[in-house]
Amino acid sequence: MTVDTYVAPKRLDEALEAMRGGRATILAGGTDLMPQSQSGKTPLGRRLVNVRRVAELHGVVLANGALHIGALTTISELMASELVRRHLPILGEACEHFASSQIRNAATLGGNVCNASPAGDTLVPLVALGAAVELASKPNGAVSTRTVPLAEFVVGPGRTRREPMELLTAVLVPLPAAGSVQRFYKFGTRLGLDISAISLGLAAVREGRTLRQVRLALGAVAPTPMRSPGAEAALEGRPLETGVIEAAAAAARDDARPISDVRASAWYRRELVHNMVKRMLTDVAEG
């Protein structure tokens, strides 16, 4: 299909207006859209709506007990954000491992979320942190918004609950409670520029030797980033001792539903989940 309309709105309501006609493709950083459209994987719609100039979609602010991260915040901007560094260190850490300097300068958080890759670098920490996404649309002349938990928003590789006329405007992350423990791990031989074979995100609240409100997110081991209910149950409220750690690592391995592909076999991915969950929890226990 050829693009017959290209627009680059500067205000949110203009952008939403431009999307009302349907068959619109949203362009932000372009780092996923360009190769996917050129290879035919994601053909461009009739309208190409470049939202990068929409002022409302930029910036990171703290309000009402949550970090409100504009969808157009680039990965580089996340890394530089004092608020992210202070409150969401695992999001910053995931960004450190995100592709390359050039891509971090262009790729946006909203784009990474909407691309919905099982290996998406920001998704695992965001799921662990209990993030939600804010979606806006203009169904009948007025702007309306809704909020969807991230874990529910992503439904499969490249598929989300975003409606065709909706725009993801922000990612909302509740401020972690006092005593927050966060850990992130991405498997790869490279520091960046690597599609993860697995990644792990842990967020919990530490009380003495015990973890509560545990969220353990696993990446690249299922069609979507997932939480490990088995590992979370094994950890919740129990002291971090060797047996508990081993049980949680084994549960995470069993919860994972990886496939074998050119990057790794399913068996190896499960082994990594086990070994790295165990390593992560041991480090928390010793730290």
């Binding site: 362009l27 372009g30 859209l33 360009m34 190769p35 470049n50 891509i103 262009a106």
Partner: peptide, 28 residues
Amino acid sequence: GEGECGACTVIVDGLSLNSCLMFAADCD
């Protein structure tokens, strides 16, 4: 052509980008 090699790096508004991943229209 996929942002994996950096041979097409350019600087846009002070930041380096892969020009193969950037839509030309966005240079406006």
